Amino acid sequence: MNHSTTILFVPGAWHNPDCYDPVVSRLEAVNYKTEKVHLPTVGPSTHYLNFDEDVAQIRRQIKHAVNAGQEVVVVVHSYGGLPSNEAIKGLDINTRQKMGLTGGVTHLFFCCSFVIAEGQSLISAFGGNDLPWFRVADDKLEVNVADPDKVFYNDCDDVQVEHAVASLRPHSYQSFHSVCTYAAWKHIPSTYLYCLQDAAIPLAVQKMMVEGTAKGFGMGTETVDASHSPFISQPDELTSAIRRAAGESI
């Protein structure tokens, strides 16, 4: 593997990035550098009104890696794809090479994440309606998950489910209404991981985003027989897919 590659992990809503640890440990065992992003909108003391702080945090961590000359593969889960696309603008390797700089984002890996076009928010992209498993507070500032064991972890064992559910935190609901202004997947190589048992973003919706929203941009695909949380239930398969996205022939 290439020691100049950093894998940056961005979690979805409600999640601590430590959820990726089974994959992180496998990548570090074959000498990849890894970084994890804690999203400010997850469990804040005061809820945010947009995704700007998430974008800024992801961008800071990408910049730190690329300024050290690293090639960066950004792995995004669920909601995490939205602020990550924004954060990548101007930090892809092609743009930086044109400026005479080394390092840059080389690949964007969607782990059952949302692929959203410019001008849309997560909510508007799906007709302006909340997903059926959202539980939104009356003041529209906080959102939680109904039945996360069934929505996120339907192929995990009881111990995994208990630990994962206990780790979830309230999320800033208004971040779901932030409008995307940059689609990094139009500008850098990208991979979408289809998760066949995903109860949060059903396979039909995953395919609609890849074959509809991203049509014509050459997004690659991988498939795993997993729930919305393959980093817990199928870490070997997810690790291999990420290594292929990083350029390995495995």
Rank of each mutant, 00 (worst) to 15 (best):
M1Q: 13
L8P: 08
P11D: 09
P11E: 09
H15M: 13
P17W: 06
P22N: 00
V23I: 03
L27K: 01
Y32M: 08
T34P: 11
T34Y: 08
E35N: 12
K36P: 03
V37N: 02
H38Q: 12
T41Q: 04
G43E: 07
P44T: 04
S45V: 15
L49Y: 10
E53F: 07
D54V: 08
Q57S: 13
I58P: 05
R60Q: 13
R60G: 11
I62Y: 07
K63S: 14
K63N: 10
H64V: 10
A65E: 14
A68Q: 14
E71A: 13
V73M: 08
V75I: 11
G80I: 02
G81A: 06
P83W: 05
S84R: 06
N85S: 13
K89S: 11
K89I: 09
G90P: 04
R96M: 07
M99A: 15
G100A: 07
T102V: 12
T102S: 15
G104M: 04
T106Q: 05
F126W: 04
F126V: 09
F126N: 08
G127K: 05
G127R: 06
D130T: 02
D130K: 07
D130H: 11
L131E: 03
L131P: 04
P132G: 08
F134W: 15
F134C: 10
L141A: 12
E142Y: 00
V143R: 00
N144C: 10
V145C: 06
P148W: 03
D149C: 11
V161W: 03
H163Y: 05
A166H: 06
L168T: 05
P170S: 12
H177W: 10
C180F: 07
W185E: 10
H187E: 15
S190V: 01
C195K: 00
Q197T: 01
A199P: 00
A199V: 07
P202V: 10
A204R: 11
A204M: 12
Q206F: 05
M208K: 10
G212R: 10
T213H: 10
G216F: 08
G216E: 07
T221M: 04
T221L: 06
T221R: 03
T223E: 11
A226I: 05
S229P: 00
A241C: 09
I242L: 06
G247N: 09
S249Q: 15
I250F: 15
